[in-house]
Simulated assay, not measured.
Amino acid sequence: MATDEHLARSRAVWDRKSDRYGMSERDFEPIRETAMDYLELGAGDRVLDVGCGPGVNFERLRSDVGESGSVVAVDYSPEMVANARERVDRHGWENVEVLCADATEVDPDGEFDAAMASLSMAVMPDARRAVENVYRLLAPGGTFVVFDLRRVQTGPARVFNPLLWRFLRWYANWNPENDVLEALRTVSDETDVVETYAAGVGYTVRCRKRPDSGE
Rank of each mutant, 00 (worst) to 15 (best):
D19R: 15
A35Q: 06
R151G: 03
W14F: 15
E111V: 15
P140D: 14
Y171V: 08
Y21A: 15
E33A: 15
P211W: 06
S188Q: 08
D102N: 09
M121F: 14
S24T: 12
V194G: 10
N178Q: 05
L99R: 11
A35R: 10
V131Y: 01
E195S: 00
P211R: 14
N178P: 07
G42A: 09
L61H: 00
D148P: 05
E67T: 05
L41V: 02
K17M: 10
P125A: 15
C52Y: 09
D49Q: 05
W14S: 12
R85H: 04
G155Q: 14
D212Q: 09
R90G: 13
V159K: 00
M116S: 01
V201M: 08
M80K: 04
R208W: 07
F147E: 08
L7T: 00
R87W: 04
H91Y: 05
A183V: 02
E5K: 06
D45G: 04
A130S: 12
M121Y: 07
E132F: 02
R26P: 04
V180W: 02
G22E: 15
A35P: 10
L164D: 01
M116P: 00
E94V: 07
A8Q: 09
S18G: 10
S24P: 04
V50Y: 07
G69N: 00
W165S: 11
A117F: 00
D45F: 02
M124K: 04
S68C: 01
T186S: 12
F144P: 10
M124F: 10
R85E: 12
T3G: 14
L163P: 02
S63V: 04
W165F: 09
V205N: 09
R16T: 14
E97N: 00
D212E: 14
L39Y: 09
V13M: 14
A115N: 03
R16V: 06
A117P: 00
A84I: 05
L48G: 11
V159I: 07
V106I: 13
E177S: 14
A82Q: 09
S68T: 10
V152I: 15
G44Y: 01
Y38Q: 08
S63H: 06
S18N: 09
A122Y: 13
G142I: 08
L61A: 00
E33F: 05
L39S: 11
S118N: 03
A101L: 07
E215S: 13
S213G: 04
E195W: 00
R9H: 12
G66D: 10
F144A: 10
S120L: 00
I31R: 05
S24A: 15
L181C: 01
L41N: 04
N83H: 14
G214R: 10
D189A: 11
P162H: 08
L99I: 13
V123K: 02
V65I: 07
L41M: 03
F28Y: 11
D27K: 10
Y21N: 13
V72G: 02
V146Q: 05
G202W: 03
R210L: 13
V13H: 13
D212T: 13
L99S: 03
V201N: 01
L137V: 04
V56L: 08
N83G: 10
G53I: 12
R11A: 14
E5F: 07
T196N: 01
S213E: 07
E182D: 11
A117I: 00
D109I: 08
G200M: 06
R16A: 15
R87H: 05
M36H: 03
A199C: 01
T196K: 03
N83E: 11
P78K: 13
R210M: 04
P78Q: 13
P30S: 00
